[in-house]
C-alpha cells in the first residue's frame, strides 16, 4: 500500500512502472489519473488545492484499508497533489492490482468515489483572474451509496 500527498508534480508512467515492478503474482493492473481540465470555454488560469495535513493521509489509508477488506486485491497506490496546479497537470492517481480485472476495476472505482467526497481536499479554480471554490456535487455523494 502506497500513499503520497504531495505538492510536487508526479510522472504517471514512472509511478505505474515502479508500482508494477513491485508486484508479484498479479493478473490485472488498473490505473486512473485525474488531470486539471483546460476549461476551453472559460479559460482556467490555474487550480489551487487545499488539504488538511495529517487527516488527509490518515483518511486515505482508512479508505484503502476498506478496499482491501472488500476486494481480493494484491496492492493499491494513491497519489494526490495539493497547492497550485496548471491546466493539463496531473492532480492525482489511483492504481490497483489484483489477480483478476473485476476486483481491480471495482476497487479503483471505489477508491475514486471515496477520495472525491471523503478525503479532505478542497479545490479552488481561478478563471480569468477571478477565484471561486469548487462546489461538491450531489452526484459525487450519490456515487457512494452503491458501495454501502
Amino acid at each position: 500500500m502506497y500513499v503520497s500527498v504531495q505538492n510536487e508534480f508526479f510522472d504517471f508512467s514512472a509511478e505505474v512502472k515502479k508500482f508494477s515492478e513491485s508486484l508479484e503474482n498479479v493478473g490485472a493492473l488498473v490505473t486512473f489519473t485525474g488531470i486539471v481540465r483546460g476549461q476551453k470555454s472559460k479559460t482556467l488560469d490555474y487550480m489551487f488545492i487545499e488539504h488538511y495535513p495529517g487527516m488527509t493521509e490518515a483518511q486515505i489509508k482508512i479508505i484503502m484499508e476498506d478496499s482491501f477488506k472488500r476486494w481480493k486485491i494484491n496492492d493499491a497506490l494513491v497519489i494526490h497533489r495539493y497547492g497550485k496546479l496548471e491546466p493539463g497537470e496531473p492532480i492525482m492517481m489511483v492504481a490497483t492490482a489484483a489477480q483478476h480485472r473485476k476486483e481491480a476495476f471495482e476497487a479503483a472505482e471505489f477508491l475514486m468515489d471515496y477520495l472525491k467526497s471523503r478525503a479532505p481536499f478542497w479545490k479552488k479554480e481561478v478563471v480569468n483572474g477571478k477565484e471561486h471554490w469548487v462546489e461538491a456535487i450531489a452526484a459525487d455523494e450519490t456515487a457512494l451509496s452503491r458501495w454501502r
Binding site: 485525474g34 494526490h80 472525491k116 467526497s117 478525503a119 479532505p120 481536499f121 478542497w122 462546489e135 461538491a136
Partner: peptide, 10 residues
C-alpha cells in the same frame, strides 16, 4: 475541531 465545506478531492 475542524470546520470545512464538503470535500472536493479526486
Amino acid at each position: 475541531i475542524a470546520f470545512f465545506p464538503p470535500m472536493t478531492g479526486g
